[in-house]
Simulated assay, not measured.
Amino acid sequence: MELWDLFDRSGNIVSTNHERGETIPEGTYHKIVNIIVQHVDGDYLIMKRSDDKESRAGEYELTAGGSTIKGEDFREGAWRELYEETGIKADILHELTPVIIREEKRFLQQNFFCLTNVDKNAIQLQAGETQGFQWLSEDEVLAISNTDSLVRLSNEVIERIKQIKFKHYDLT
């Protein structure tokens, strides 16, 4: 059983011990995180969702991520989700966007960026969550970003990806 904290629109905890899968009460939200991973060579990691997923089964997405669990903030959830779904341990996660409120799905979403020098063949897949991965160039990602080949990203996130210039970070 996975437990979540529930929050108001401002991110204040209003309830704890909410069981995943239960209806989220009106006026409350759970937190989700998405992490876009770029290799130092410029390629982006895309992950293939498991065929067992309830939504978008078997589709590729440009993010690792998921729900934060009870007691986690956005960044802690992002570190955990990134490691669980890819095996990547990030020292630094950069916020890509301010918190986005998704009324229709009842969640608060925070997007992160991870620049890594991990061995590109060492990605570890999480059973039941992911079943494959690819590394694509920025041009390849942008070419499929508005097609059914890739789970759609908001234009705000795509524009932010185009602006990322993190080459000055020392990854050694």
Rank of each mutant, 00 (worst) to 15 (best):
M1T: 15
D5C: 02
D8W: 04
R9E: 14
I13F: 01
I13W: 03
T16G: 00
N17T: 00
E19T: 11
T28N: 12
Y29N: 07
K31L: 01
V33E: 02
I35V: 09
H39K: 03
V40A: 14
V40G: 04
G42L: 07
L45A: 01
M47Y: 06
R49T: 00
E54S: 15
R56P: 00
L62W: 10
A64W: 03
G66S: 06
S67A: 15
E72I: 00
F74W: 07
R75V: 13
E76V: 11
A78D: 05
Y83C: 08
E84Y: 02
E85R: 07
K89R: 15
K89A: 10
A90S: 09
L93G: 00
L96I: 11
R102E: 08
E103S: 07
K105P: 02
F107Q: 08
L108T: 01
C114H: 05
C114S: 07
T116R: 02
V118K: 14
Q124T: 05
Q126D: 07
A127C: 07
G128D: 10
Q131F: 05
L136H: 07
V141G: 07
S145V: 14
T147Y: 02
S149E: 15
R152T: 06
V157N: 13
E159P: 06
I164A: 04
K167H: 12
L171Y: 02
